[in-house]
Each structure stands twice: as structure tokens, then as C-alpha cells.
Amino acid sequence: LVRYRTISKIPQITLNFVDLKGDPFLASPTSDREIIAPKIKERTHNVTEKVTQVLSLGADVLPEYKLQAPRIHRWTILHYSPFKAVWDWLILLLVIYTAVFTPYSAAFLLKETEEGPPATECGYACQPLAVVDLIVDIMFIVDILINFRTTYVNANEEVVSHPGRIAVHYFKGWFLIDMVAAIPFDLLIFGSGSEELIGLLKTARLLRLVRVARKLDRYSEYGAAVLFLLMCTFALIAHWLACIWYAIGNMEQPHMDSRIGWLHNLGDQIGKPYNSSGLGGPSIKDKYVTALYFTFSSLTSVGFGNVSPNTNSEKIFSICVMLIGSLMYASIFGNVSAIIQRLYSGTARYHTQMLRVREFIRFHQIPNPLRQRLEEYFQHAWSYTNGIDMNAVLKGFPECLQADICLHLNRSLLQHCKPFRGATKGCLRALAMKFKTTHAPPGDTLVHAGDLLTALYFISRGSIEILRGDVVVAILGKNDIFGEPLNLYARPGKSNGDVRALTYCDLHKIHR
């Protein structure tokens, strides 16, 4: 019993810090008490220290592992850092350059016999395009090294910054494609005289377009951006097909006994025919423009016929181009109408809503002055909100995010209106959640004399007048207030005048 009563005193000691020596009952000389009392004092002292730490809000209350900052290894790049964003855009520009100039170089340097010394005699450094290609190869190699040090988000939505895990993730992902696209074939085969082989191998750079397509997928929600990307894709495919079309004609031209190829026909049409040795002929500019003209006309199913396939190889390629053109029509131009419709969806919704308003007016036989006010209010409210119901949009977000959005939407009023000066951010967040926005066209009466005042109004834009009878008592403008002081009276009061809008007004109100 003594032991039980001794232990039962522990909660009292913990909360009230009572010393055991003052209790005459606990001072009985028993061996059990002498053993338990020192333990009680020690526990009391420890609990006292913990309570003191909690009340003082000291940093040592938290466990040590929670006080440590997340460790980022040296030379690790955050995937959302500004440097990584700028670097990704730079790589994107280099990939676009590669997609345009690599097929052009591979096709127009394929057994090209233009006048001038061969590239091997001039030297590697004197070729501007080769120098640019070398810079692109170096940048792609540097990009691989950067990807080995860039964080990523795993399946659990955690940012991984450990170098080993980053390397394994990159090896399992895009490393092989990036490595093949970054191989400097110019340096590996330079001086061997195989410019045709170098041009063909350099087309491996186009593998990076797969990554670019995935990154550009984030802009699919913007109709104008999608339309622009589709047109660029169409032009890029036409450019690639033009390079292939020229390569076919250029390879067949020296081996044909009869002059029936499209390059021969082009030379005869523009007065620059090929001679018996295969030299001469149109310039590279004429060849490229004509090839691009043929691919565009074939892809769009126009086909004027002034550039036509004559050999079997050219006919087979033309059939493939027609098939590609039909697929592009289905996948690209078939979506253009939907994209344009999405661009004008706001206008369509406006006309639909206006039609419903006019049908309501016609069905209920609203008189002319009231009908005009109804239409003007709808037009003004639509121009202010673009038909978007803010309350319906915010309803799907958590309250903390709703408060931040409301604070942002009402920031101008909260910053410049005098009653809100000096208020804490928590108070402003709470008030912003209570605001209701209303609009009024010129001549609209917001409050009639004798109406119950259940709200306090803040003028965000425009001006109003307060009338008693036919006498203008006051004219209020931006950041002015009218209405009933909230919670100042037990019952809502009545208006002693009319409140009429002089201009288009936007008002925020808080109800009782």
C-alpha cells in the first residue's frame, strides 16, 4: 500500500512540481520508500527539464536528425535550378540546329562534286560548318556529364541527390541515346576521305529529338503553341524528305545512260545542264529549293507536275512521300480545326451564355430598361472574369491554397485601402477568403433606401454616388468604403439613402 501511494504521487509531482519531503505519510521509514524516492526525484528532475525545454521552444527539443539540413553532394545540380533551365534551352537550340543542318550536310555532301578544292585539302579548321559541328559534339558530351550530376524525382516524389543513384537512373534511361548522339564521328573518321560515311553517321544526332519531343509535351495545353509546333514538325519532315529526294537524284545521276532524272530535267529547265562528264548542272541553292518544293507539294497532295519522278527509285520514294503525307494530314492537320476551336472556345461560351440571357429575357418578357441593365451587367461581368467562376475553380483546392490565391487576387485593395494598413498577414488572409466580388454598370442602383444592410462594401474600381431623395450626399471612388460596420450592432440596419454607380464599378463586399 505504501508503495502504491508513493507511485500514485508521481503525476502530481510531474505537473505541480511538489516535493515529496513535505508529505508526512511518505516520510515513514520503510525500505521500499527509501529505494523508490531517489528514482522519483530523478524522474521528476528529468520531466521538469523536458517541460522547461518545451515551454522555452528551444531548438534542442527536436531530434538531432530533424535539425540537420538535407545534404547535397558537391557538384550536384538541382533539376529545378536556373542554371539547369538555361542549359536545357541551350541544348534545345543545338538539337534544332542539328535537326536542320545534319540531314542537309549528309545529303548535299554525298558524292558532291561542286567546283573547288576537296575538304581534305583545305583542312578541318577552315570549314565553318565542321567547326560548328565540333562545338555541338562537345556541348552534347558536356550535357552527358551534367546529367550524371543532376537530381531527379523518383516514384515516391522524392528528390534524389545521391550521385550513385543518379548515375544508375541515367544509365537506365537516356544515357545510350545521348551517348550515340554525342559521338564525334568527324574526329574519329577525319582524314579518311569518307565524307559520305561521316554525313550518314552524323544523322545519329537526330535521336535527341525524342527527348525534345517529350520536353515539349508540357506545352500541349496551349493551343497556339501546339499549332506552332505542328507546323514546325511538318516543315521539318518536309526538309528531311527534300534532303533524301536530292540524295536519290544525286546518286543516280552519274550512272544513268539517259538523262531522265529530276536533276537533269531541272538543269535543262533553268539552262544549267550537266555536261557529258557529269559536272556542271544547277547550283546547290536551286537543287535544295526545288527538292523542298517537290516534297511540300507531295505532302499537301497538290502535285503540280513541273517536278516529277521519272526513275524507279524516284517513283518509289514519291509513293512513300504520299503515304507520309496522308498520315500527316490525319495526325496534324486533322487537329488544326480542334485547336482553332479551342482557341476561340471563350468567344463561343460568351455567345452561348448571351443567347441564354436573351432567351430568358424573351421568355419572361423583361421590360426594355431592365433588359438593357441585365445585358450590360452580363457584358461587364464577362469582360472582368472571362466567364470563369472563381468560386467553382477554387473549390477543388485546399483552404490554405485558397487563402493564398484570394490574398493575391485582392492584393491591390488590401495594400491601398486604409482600414487594412497594419493588419497582420493572417488577418488579411482571413479577410480575403470572405470577400465576394460584384460588378455594376453605370446607372445601376446597388442599394435602395430602406434596404437591409448586411454587408460592408469596398470599391475596387469606378465611382458611385450616394443620394437622399434627389440630393447627392457624397461621391465615392476607388478604395472608399460604404455599408454597415460589421458586428457593431446586434441587428442589421437599414439604408438611409440610395447608392448608384456612376461608372463601371468593381466592388468587394463582406457579409455579416
Rank of each mutant, 00 (worst) to 15 (best):
V132R: 01
V212M: 06
R214K: 05
Q127P: 06
I270E: 01
K172C: 09
A99I: 01
I91Q: 01
S220Y: 10
H448V: 08
R429I: 04
S105L: 01
L279E: 12
T295M: 15
M179I: 11
A181N: 01
F333H: 06
V136T: 06
N156A: 13
D268K: 11
E114M: 13
K272L: 01
N154R: 09
H239M: 01
G346C: 13
I96R: 01
F101D: 01
A182H: 01
H162L: 11
K172V: 04
V447T: 02
E196D: 14
N386Y: 07
E375W: 08
H162E: 09
Q253N: 14
M322L: 03
R373D: 03
F333E: 03
N391E: 08
F171S: 04
S220H: 09
I324H: 01
L78V: 05
G422H: 11
L129K: 06
G305E: 01
G193L: 05
E375C: 05
I248M: 01
L413S: 01
F140S: 01
L90V: 11
G267T: 04
V302S: 04
M328S: 04
I237M: 13
W75D: 01
A291G: 01
V86Y: 02
D444P: 01
V159P: 04
Y219D: 01
N335Q: 15
H448R: 10
F175S: 01
R74S: 14
S194L: 14
K272F: 01
L394R: 02
E112K: 11
F175T: 01
L188V: 13
V302Q: 03
G173N: 09
Q415L: 13
L299D: 01
I339Q: 04
G278N: 03
H439D: 01
C406H: 15
R358I: 01
G261M: 01
M139R: 01
T150A: 03
M328D: 01
N386C: 10
L414T: 02
T233E: 04
F175V: 01
L229M: 09
A125K: 15
T203F: 04
G443C: 01
L414K: 01
K111L: 04
I183S: 04
M433N: 01
L129A: 09
E221D: 09
L197Q: 01
